[in-house]
Deep mutational scan, measured.
Amino acid sequence: GCWSIEHVEQYLGTDELPKNDLITYLQKNADAAFLRHWKLTGTNKSIRKNRNCSQLIAAYKDFCEHGT
């Protein structure tokens, strides 16, 4: 299931919640338009490089609020 937004804000980028895991989750569960909008298409590695934690948190919040 979903992590809470508080959990993501607190732990994203740590061993508790690697950016990797959040990106994988969104790529698996969000639709193509969402991924394009948040620039989460492409390889996990390129996304990790190009999107910082606050951008990923914003995307995750949007996903939780509007889910697909």
Rank of each mutant, 00 (worst) to 15 (best):
C2P: 06
C2L: 12
C2Q: 14
C2Y: 15
W3Q: 02
W3G: 04
W3I: 03
I5F: 15
I5W: 06
I5G: 03
E6I: 04
E6G: 09
H7S: 05
H7N: 10
H7E: 07
H7K: 09
H7Q: 14
H7V: 05
V8Q: 00
V8R: 01
V8N: 02
E9F: 05
E9S: 11
Q10S: 11
Q10H: 10
Q10W: 05
Q10P: 00
Q10D: 09
Q10L: 08
Y11W: 10
Y11Q: 10
Y11M: 11
L12A: 05
G13V: 01
T14H: 06
T14F: 02
T14W: 02
D15F: 13
D15A: 14
D15E: 12
D15C: 15
E16H: 13
E16Y: 06
E16N: 15
L17I: 03
L17V: 03
L17T: 01
P18A: 07
P18Q: 07
P18D: 05
P18F: 05
D21F: 08
D21I: 13
D21S: 15
D21C: 12
D21K: 15
D21H: 15
L22W: 00
L22D: 02
L22G: 00
I23R: 01
I23P: 01
I23K: 01
I23H: 01
T24R: 13
T24G: 11
T24H: 07
Y25E: 03
Y25Q: 03
L26S: 02
Q27S: 06
Q27N: 03
Q27M: 10
Q27E: 04
Q27A: 06
Q27R: 13
K28V: 09
K28I: 05
K28G: 10
K28T: 12
N29A: 10
N29L: 03
N29K: 10
N29D: 03
A30F: 00
A30L: 00
A30E: 01
A30Y: 00
A30R: 00
A30Q: 00
A30T: 06
D31N: 10
D31I: 01
A32T: 11
A32Y: 10
A32V: 13
A32P: 11
A32N: 11
A33K: 13
A33G: 10
F34D: 03
F34L: 05
F34V: 02
L35T: 03
L35V: 04
L35M: 06
L35E: 01
L35W: 02
L35S: 02
R36I: 07
R36C: 06
R36F: 10
R36D: 11
R36S: 11
R36E: 10
H37G: 08
W38Q: 04
W38A: 03
W38S: 03
W38P: 00
K39Y: 05
K39N: 04
L40K: 03
L40A: 00
L40I: 13
L40T: 00
L40G: 00
T41A: 10
T41H: 12
T41K: 10
T41V: 13
T41C: 13
T41D: 10
G42C: 05
G42Y: 05
T43E: 14
T43L: 08
T43Y: 07
N44F: 11
N44G: 10
N44K: 13
K45E: 09
K45H: 04
S46F: 07
S46E: 12
S46H: 08
I47D: 07
I47M: 14
I47V: 14
R48P: 06
R48L: 09
R48C: 10
R48F: 07
R48T: 09
K49I: 03
K49Q: 07
K49L: 07
N50F: 06
N50D: 08
N50Y: 07
N50H: 15
R51T: 12
R51Y: 05
R51Q: 09
N52G: 06
C53M: 09
C53F: 04
S54Y: 09
S54F: 08
S54R: 15
Q55S: 13
Q55L: 06
Q55D: 10
Q55N: 06
L56N: 00
L56S: 01
L56K: 01
L56C: 00
L56Y: 02
I57Y: 09
I57H: 03
I57C: 12
I57F: 12
A58Q: 13
A58P: 03
A59G: 02
A59T: 05
A59W: 00
A59D: 01
Y60W: 10
K61C: 06
K61M: 07
D62P: 01
D62S: 13
D62M: 07
F63R: 01
F63M: 04
F63E: 01
F63V: 01
F63K: 01
C64V: 13
C64K: 11
E65R: 13
E65P: 05
H66S: 14
H66K: 14
H66E: 11
G67L: 15
G67V: 13
